[in-house]
Design a protein around this nucleic acid. Structure first.
Lengths: 189, 189
DNA sequence: GAAAACATTTGCCATTTGGCAAAAAGCGAT
DNA sequence: ATCGCTTTTTGCCAAATGGCAAATGTTTTC
């Protein structure tokens, strides 16, 4: 729980009473490897905060290929924003890549907090804007760089994630086939 | 100015007085083709709204290649968020691709509006979150699809932009070379 | 510890894309 | 219409990546 509080306070100040109220609404969720936090075709009704483990967001493209859109690791919010905010069916899956431990808020509680705590919405907006900008910054270079460079950048930026995810997920994240990634790794050694 | 008001009211309600206050702070800016709205290495101090024309955000990668990160056309906000919000030097250029007509707000006025108009910050946050999500959705498929598919999708989704931008900008946006894009276009005909 | 299930590597070859430079086409100014 | 400039296309060949299937390695289950 301390992790969550520290995370929040990076984005703005709250008094102890407000913090207590927020944490009182969080419940722990253990999500075993491969299980889904939210699924395509369903409406997402939870906001999560990753205490432990790695998750991913993925979808199936028009050829039926499974594409990993991004990875989410410790001390980050995990939420299918489009679906959660607008109560519409999601087009993506959010899945535990390893066994995960989360703190989760129900949509009901989350909205109650937004209506109750003055300044909480500003903090949430800041968190979301920051997270979205990060996703853009991470994904953009993948369009223009060659495959080896993408892999090297990933190694450099996310060494902690690298060894916890299957190669196939990483390959689809990087936009290359698993065999190509395997060959790239061989050449680097 | 009507375009801006309509744009804003999509995201929330404001009374006439509030709208008048906002529009009173906007000034028209004509930006000729190729000129910069904001530049890498400088701190961005303006928020713009595109009335007419196409703009782009671009940067130079570590090989010195110029990469177009996205295009912005009519009825969209244009702002270098990271730089504007945090008063830090930008790492990207925002440039007019065609002659452009904008409405612009100075940072000073923009912040005054945020402090003055109740509910304006919520609207701004919604606009920003939506815009960021859009950028992610547009850019993500570029990682996994092949070059021809990327070009076809672009044609389909942004037919209005297609014929107003140089091929070289589009190629770097799609993550391919200009010659490849030219060949792809030949094969499609 | 053996069998089964799953993940990763490799070989072979086809296809796509890049790099470079020259040619062609388009465009504006005179 | 012509010149000069920029943009786009093309040819040639090299390099990167994909597709598929088999082989190897790793993990899980019983």
């Amino acid at each position: 729980m301390k992790e969550l509080v520290n995370f929040i306070l990076q984005y703005g100040n709250l008094n102890q009473q407000q913090i207590d109220l927020i944490t009182s609404k969080a419940s722990e969720l253990e999500l075993p490897k491969d299980e889904y936090f939210s699924e395509a075709g369903k409406i997402s009704t939870q906001v999560g905060f990753v205490l432990d483990g790695v998750m991913r967001v993925c979808y199936y493209d028009n050829k039926g290929e499974e594409i990993t859109k991004y990875f989410i690791d410790e001390k980050n919010l995990v939420v299918d924003l489009e679906s959660f905010q607008n109560s519409i069916c999601s087009s993506a899956y959010v899945q535990a890549v390893t066994d995960c431990k989360l703190l989760v808020f129900s949509k009901h509680d989350w909205e109650e907090l937004l209506n109750t705590i003055v300044g909480w919405d500003a903090i949430v907006h800041k968190i979301i804007a920051r997270a979205l900008m990060q996703k853009i910054e991470r994904r953009s270079p993948l369009v223009s760089e060659d495959a080896t460079t993408r892999y090297l950048s990933f190694m450099e930026k996310y060494p902690k994630i690298l060894n916890r995810i299957p190669l196939s997920y990483l390959a689809s994240y990087l936009g290359i086939t698993q065999s190509s990634l395997s060959r790239i790794r061989k050449n680097i050694r």
